[in-house]
């Protein structure tokens, strides 16, 4: 797919534009990491400080008794892992049923399931809040996991459908002719074959669950607060506690960065919910 060399000027110009946008994307994050190593005064220095003695005290404070950020990281981890496990399992099962079977109402049911991916959390959050209060699910990890899975099961359905559609039907038909039941076919033939797709889906679910705000914010108050949601508490009535805020942000970004490294190759498919193969 080699193309003839474009005119030089155009080449340099377009490269410059790309570099400029690339830098614009990364610089704020870099700036945030720097800020997390600054004192409260250095953060607002004029001119902006690029060279200074890094100060890790805000990080040590983070894990100290006052902030106890590890608690929120643990919450986030449990919630994100729980949500992705639940969503990918149930989403794959539903995707299998919807791609392989047709039964009365399956099309409408599928439309509804898929559309739930786009249901704004704000629509259901207040009734859910009342419901959770009634059932004692408020401020529990399980409550957040269940609530997150309401948009991540549909997300998994979207994505797993795409992976399942890539799998030739003849494979599962062969299994059934060979004497396997639907469940056996799913467990022994389908699941191993779509395992890579499930890993990708799970990683996306992890990221979305980790980053989710409204549900985690309204449905938790103390013991199940997630790491990103905890950030809001650095905003006091008067001012924002910037050093701790930024170090907490950086820490809460680490799991996401790991997922980013893994998911890079699958971004197009994941973000387009399987609509576009990357």
């Amino acid at each position: 797919m080699t193309r003839k060399t474009p005119r030089r000027i155009g080449w340099y110009l377009s490269a410059a534009v790309l570099v400029a946008f690339g830098v614009t994307s990364v610089f704020p994050i870099f700036w945030m990491i720097l800020a997390s190593l600054k004192s409260a005064i250095e953060i607002w220095n004029r001119p902006p400080l690029f060279i200074f003695t890094p100060n890790f005290s805000s990080y040590t404070d983070l894990f100290g008794p006052d902030i106890n950020y590890q608690k929120f990281l643990t919450n986030s981890l449990i919630i994100a892992v729980g949500t992705s496990a639940l969503s990918v399992t149930l989403g794959s099962m539903a995707a299998y049923a919807f791609t392989r079977g047709k039964f009365w109402g399956s099309k409408s049911l599928q439309m509804w399931f898929l559309s739930l991916k786009f249901l704004p959390s704000i629509v259901i959050i207040f009734p859910l809040f009342l419901e959770y209060r009634y059932f004692g699910l408020m401020d529990t990890q399980l409550g957040v996991i269940l609530a997150h899975s309401t948009f991540l099961i549909p997300f998994s359905l979207w994505l797993m459908k795409a992976y399942l559609q890539d799998l030739p039907r003849a494979i599962d038909e062969a299994a059934m002719v060979d004497g396997a039941s639907r469940l056996e076919t799913f467990r022994k033939i389908i699941l191993p074959l779509v395992a890579p797709g499930m890993a990708v889906t799970a990683a996306f679910c992890f990221v979305f669950s980790w980053n989710e705000f409204i549900i985690a914010y309204i449905l938790t108050s103390n013991s199940a607060v997630t790491a990103p949601t905890r950030l809001t508490q650095f905003r006091g009535l008067e001012a924002i506690d910037w050093p701790h805020l930024f170090s907490a942000e950086v820490v809460s970004l680490i799991p996401l960065f790991i997922m980013f490294l893994f998911l890079q190759r699958f971004l197009v498919r994941g973000l387009s919910l399987g609509a576009v193969k990357g």
């Binding site: 994307s25 700036w31 945030m32 949601t229």
Partner: peptide
């Protein structure tokens, strides 16, 4: 370019909100 460009997608809205509160601050 793609790697650099895509990183923000992975950030939480809260982080971005605070980060830009900091960046946009009018005087400093």
């Amino acid at each position: 370019f793609r790697t650099a460009f895509v990183i923000p997608v992975f950030m939480s809205g809260i982080s971005i909100g605070f980060l830009y509160t900091y960046i946009y601050e009018p005087s400093n």
